[in-house]
Design a binder for these strands. Structure first.
Lengths: 206, 206
DNA sequence: CAATTTCTATAGTGATCGCTATATAAGTCG
DNA sequence: CGACTTATATAGCGATCACTATAGAAATTG
């Protein structure tokens, strides 16, 4: 009896659903949506299928909870980096550097759940959820860049998303934090150039 | 009887194995290794499981053939871009631009099979093959960059790999060729800066 | 022709997938 | 206490996974 809410009738839960969401997040991030079975989650939580379905409804519904929790918790660094001091290029520099730190392998977890959690999945429901989350992230980036570069906000968002995609993929392939940071810094400089350029980069090599 | 080799005894094949490898490549690229079943391939080829196993041995063995064919054919653009005229930065500019073109969705296919074909897969054998192919690609990049930048060849390879990873991932997420090209050009400029820089970028904004 | 070789289809292996029908255990409430 | 409510476990659903045992069909060879 992990949860103990007074005034509730019926047999109490033998596990904490919030902790279960965290456990599931870890599993989904390690193996991807399709790579984790309901049986795996059940084993990790010490529960059997009926308890799982009574608590979460379905594997997809649990994944939705995991994604919401992920975005609201771990994923906060994105809006935080974007809304910090300085211009768009400063924000992107913070964002990519932070991503390089966070995406690097820690406790068997690497990369971003939203970016890579359902890659190659054949589950339409899970794919649709991720599409929504990615669209929301793109809108967030675009809105930030549009404040200074309304004309090319969309292109700038594409560059940042592709950079984040690359960092997450390399992290999942085992890249070290130092390796990721090198790419992050290079891409951040590329972004800064892009915010300046009309045609090519207006810089002069010394 | 697609194949007709004279002098062979026994019942002839009802399908062309080389064409089958191409068909399988398409399927693997569309849905990933785990997303394609032997039954799917059989249906696409109009054959039943015994014919499949008689010809290829196993799903993993077919995938190995697909990867070899992919690297030897489609994947030639990588060494070709690297060995063209100019310095490393010129080579990377060609490489990333070519990748942007090729990775963009065409006939339902997007991204790179080596980069994303087994992402989130739970098949150890297929994963091991991809690890080998990725290592070979990294070595190729590193060797090219080491000719001009022996000290930082490894870091430069990391940047290019992360850029390619990003382009492939964004392509699989549906990015247009124009979008990918914008990122490719930005990353190529970042790479050029990196080949010049010791500390930060030695440029002056005009 | 018959013998040999090779590929073919039908059917089914055991394992795993997400999910559930049934019954029981473990609580609160009157 | 009994009535009620909720969560639990055992067992199994149909579907799909990679793969195979068996036997027959289609070619070359003597």
């Amino acid at each position: 009896m992990t949860t103990k809410k007074v005034g509730t009738r019926g047999r109490p839960r033998s596990f904490d659903p919030a902790a279960a969401v965290e456990t599931a997040q870890t599993l989904f991030q390690q193996r991807g949506y399709d790579g984790v079975g309901v049986a795996d989650i059940g084993k990790a939580l010490g529960i059997t299928p009926p308890s799982f379905y009574n608590a979460f409804g379905s594997k997809a519904a649990l994944f939705a909870q995991v994604l919401d929790s992920y975005t609201a918790g771990y994923g906060r660094f994105v809006p935080e980096a974007l809304e910090g001091p300085g211009d768009s290029a400063d924000a992107v520099d913070r964002l990519l550097a932070e991503a390089a730190c966070r995406y690097a392998t820690k406790d068997g977890i690497a990369g971003c759940l939203v970016i890579d959690g359902v890659r190659n999945s054949s589950d339409a429901e899970a794919l649709a959820m991720i599409v929504r989350h990615k669209a929301a992230s793109r809108d967030m980036l675009k809105a930030r860049f549009a404040r200074e570069h309304p004309e090319k906000a969309d292109g700038l968002a594409s560059i940042v998303i592709t950079a984040l995609n690359g960092l997450s993929a390399s992290a999942r392939d085992g890249a070290s934090e130092a390796e990721l940071m090198l790419s992050a810094k290079a891409f951040a400089r590329a972004f800064r150039e892009e915010t300046r350029a009309s045609g090519g980069p207006r810089v002069r090599v010394l």
